[in-house]
Simulated scan of single mutants.
Amino acid sequence: MEVGIGGAYDCTNIVRKPVVCGVSALGMDHTSLLGDTMEKIAWQKGGIFKRGVPAFTVPQPDGPLAVLRERAEQVSCPLYLCPPLDALEDGAPPLTLGLEGEHQRSNAALALQLARCWLQRKDRHGIGELRVSRPSLLCQLPLAPVFQPTAPMRHGLRDTEWPGRTQMLCRGPLTWYLDGAHTCSSVQACVRWFRQALQRRKGGPEVRVLLFNSTGDRDGRDPVLQTPSPPRDLLSHPVASSGASVLREAAAVHVLVTGSLHLVGGVLKLLDPSLSQ
């Protein structure tokens, strides 16, 4: 079950005794409700911790991580830091992720710990063979178990699909790159994924198009969204018709759609009408 907004005052707290809890990488989002600093947001996120219920998180900045630790201690919640995915791959075949982007490795590491803990607390078999754990470099939290992911876990990571998240759709000469990133950190991760995807493409004349939308209380003036020194070959076409000739001459057109889940959802409905049925 995914929390809607924050954690401390979210309706999912009606579940008084969850099996396990997890906090993924924190970002500046919903600041009008959660607070205008990462520490305030971490306090809200820590509201999902429950007495005696194991919880896991991924590496966070020192300040927010300290807040999460304090929140866990206040309710006697055992909180663990997820080791990187590399540690679980050590000496075994690399894990294949269905979701692209380097940042998805952090999410996968958290998902594996949550799955293993759930199976363990439900007395299920096939939870993965434990390996020798390496000490946590952060020293703020105990390190979660380092184990060998089972075949079903590997298949789950490989077969995961998430429409609108690091998703690529090819439509003739157009390739659409869809990601609902809407915070500074997630937009940065989206840009890294987009660049990596383009590096795998063949050469030839190409055009890159950005469709971006920012909603709510998000600040479109954030430096991450600005281009202080545009490349020499960058052509700006604020009106679509003015760039039509450039698009017609291109061998390939790469369209990045990001900034808002509403925008990505609307584009997906146009590209794949079956999603709205």
Rank of each mutant, 00 (worst) to 15 (best):
M1E: 06
G4C: 12
G4F: 01
R16L: 13
A25V: 12
A25C: 05
L26H: 03
D29A: 10
H30I: 10
H30T: 13
L33A: 12
L34E: 07
A42T: 06
W43P: 00
V53L: 02
F56M: 10
D62Q: 14
G63V: 05
L65F: 01
A66F: 02
V67T: 01
V67N: 02
R69V: 05
A72M: 05
L79V: 02
P84F: 01
P94D: 08
T96I: 11
T96Y: 08
L97W: 03
H103N: 07
H103A: 14
H103P: 02
H103W: 09
R105H: 10
A115C: 12
R116T: 12
Q120S: 14
R121T: 14
R121A: 13
R124N: 09
R131V: 08
Q140H: 09
L141H: 04
V146A: 12
F147C: 09
A151K: 08
P152F: 04
P152K: 14
M168F: 06
R171D: 06
G172K: 00
Y177F: 15
G180V: 09
G180R: 03
A189N: 14
C190S: 13
F194G: 00
Q199N: 11
P205F: 03
P205C: 12
V209G: 00
N213Q: 14
D217I: 11
G220E: 15
G220D: 12
Q226T: 13
P228G: 10
P230Y: 03
P230N: 06
P230L: 05
L234W: 10
L235P: 00
L235Q: 11
V239N: 05
L247H: 02
A250I: 08
A250R: 07
A252P: 01
A252R: 15
V255H: 08
T258C: 13
G259R: 06
V264F: 00
G265V: 03
L268T: 02
L268H: 01
L271V: 01
D272I: 11
